[in-house]
Design a protein around this nucleic acid. Structure first.
Lengths: 135, 135
DNA sequence: TGCACTAGGCACTTTCAGGTAACTACTTCC
DNA sequence: GGAAGTAGTTACCTGAAAGTGCCTAGTGCA
């Protein structure tokens, strides 16, 4: 007989295998990378250079910006264009696929903004209950 | 004069302050909690008991399931109903707000499934280029 | 008598995304 | 000559999320 933990472990392995190939989870992972939202937003009104993004997206370090851009490029969500002038110039631009992603992000943003009052109210209610549970 | 790092640090603090109160980022954070998607999906066709969720969502540990459920309850996305029978029975059900969230998740899922072929193709292309960069 | 089930709680540990700092190589400006 | 801007890379560090294991308390079951 397997213990509950062993059964769970087996299930977890299967889940992981399933998950790694599951488009929805992969996409959610991308979307929730800390800087992806900002980068997509910054690029949604036209192409930008590396330095422009670095200035526009306040607080991002070169490393994370590069990492984010590379990941999005790899997924075909943005294009990277190197102009071999002196000094080199690199432009990033959303692909049609990336524009679709930006649309999704907008949907999330809209929902979040319309319903956030309800969420905040629910939270305050919940926290109040926690402080003084109903008799 | 400030160094680039100092300026970035200041910007990061402002970004963080902005971010913590930004509905979009909060919602994305929720959505990308590892088990939120599965829990919402499992509840989208009616209420479920704790044990049912634990079995249906393969691989989740009791701790993470409770944590996820509590977070969603606090945000008013699901309701927790305790029936003081023997043994106690606890039912979880999506609230109207939670149903809205499920809708969002469905939109993400649909997009992911329709466009994942393109993403995978882009990835293979990118990885091939990395192996043997164009001459 | 001892295990499993009900729904979790609590403490410890591990893992990894994200962050920091320093560095590359080239050019232009003061 | 050295500071700053071009676009990054590399090695290291940390903090929060996730996972693991053991515990509750009452009941049913063999």
């Amino acid at each position: 007989m397997m213990t509950a933990a062993q059964k769970r472990e087996q299930a977890r392995v299967e889940y992981d295998a399933f998950c790694r190939t599951c488009p929805t989870n992969e996409l959610l992972g991308r979307l929730s990378d800390k800087w992806v939202g900002l980068v997509v937003a910054a690029l949604s009104d036209g192409p930008r250079r590396y330095g422009e993004l670095n200035r526009k997206i306040a607080g991002v370090s070169p490393k994370m910006l590069t990492q984010t851009l590379r990941a999005l490029e790899r997924d075909g969500l943005l294009s990277r264009t190197v102009t071999p002038s002196v000094p080199v110039r690199v432009d990033y631009e959303l692909t049609p696929l990336g524009v679709g992603l930006a649309g999704l992000l907008t949907a999330v943003k809209t929902w979040a903004e319309t319903h956030f009052d309800e969420v905040r109210a629910a939270r305050e209610h919940y926290d109040t209950m926690a402080d003084s549970p109903a008799s």
